[in-house]
Amino acid sequence: MPRCTPIPVSLTDKERTQLEALVRQHTTAQQLATRARIILAADAGTGVHETAATLQVSRSLVQRWRRRWRERADHPVLERLSDNPRSGTPPTFTPEQICAIIALACEPAVREGVKLARWTHEDLAEEAKARGIVDAISAHSIGRFLREVDLKAHRVQGWINTPRDGDFAERCRDVCETYRLAPERAAEGIETRSIDEMTGVQALERAAPTQSVRPGRL
């Protein structure tokens, strides 16, 4: 049986703190946490076989991430634990654009000032281009984005239409940027939490009159 030669790893105090923070974070992806544990074990002097047995991973995986950690010595901690960039076409649409398209699908179906019976993927694609959300997009891409969030635009119907937030684009950018920075902040021991701002608010009066139940409806 070939012998696994340990690749020595020595961490700075800052690197060790960041790796330990990644392991503690409940939001850290399991794959990333496992890699952090491999490096921490190497720094503690734990051998390849023992690390693999403890973490229930292959010895080759332990060797690979020890090697990559050393090869990426001039990179930030999170990049040293990340997969190599994959080949292929980069993403065409930004998270902000996708959020704007999903928000559009939740609005009343109106295209170029004309009220529609319902949104179709083709109508949403044309309206997204008309509003400048994207330069070009296909109905197929619209359908894919809506399926990913389990949204059926033709079944969205509100009985009180809330005006669109004028600051939607800016707030959307802030939220997307927060999600993008969350892994990097987690590596530095900074937690990112989502909190409902108005959990204690109760409706004291209705904004619209009560409607009677139609026959056959509950």
Rank of each mutant, 00 (worst) to 15 (best):
M1W: 11
L11T: 10
R24P: 00
A29P: 00
A33S: 15
A36C: 09
I38Y: 03
I39P: 00
A41K: 04
A42N: 01
G47P: 00
H49G: 06
H49A: 14
L55V: 07
V57L: 00
R59L: 06
W65E: 01
R68L: 15
R70Y: 04
E71V: 08
E71F: 02
H75P: 03
D83T: 09
N84T: 10
R86T: 13
G88A: 10
T89W: 03
A103K: 09
E107G: 08
A109S: 15
R111H: 14
K115L: 14
R118T: 14
T120Y: 01
D123K: 02
A125V: 06
E127I: 01
A128S: 11
K129T: 04
G132H: 02
I133K: 00
D135C: 05
D135L: 09
I137P: 00
A139E: 15
H140I: 02
G143E: 02
R144T: 14
E148R: 09
E148V: 03
H154Q: 15
Q157E: 13
T162R: 13
D165R: 12
D167I: 06
A169P: 01
R180Y: 06
A186Q: 09
A186D: 03
E188C: 11
G189T: 04
L204G: 11
L204W: 10
L204V: 10
R206H: 12
A207D: 08
P209M: 06
S212P: 07
R214E: 06
R214H: 11
G216R: 05
G216W: 10
L218I: 13
L218W: 12
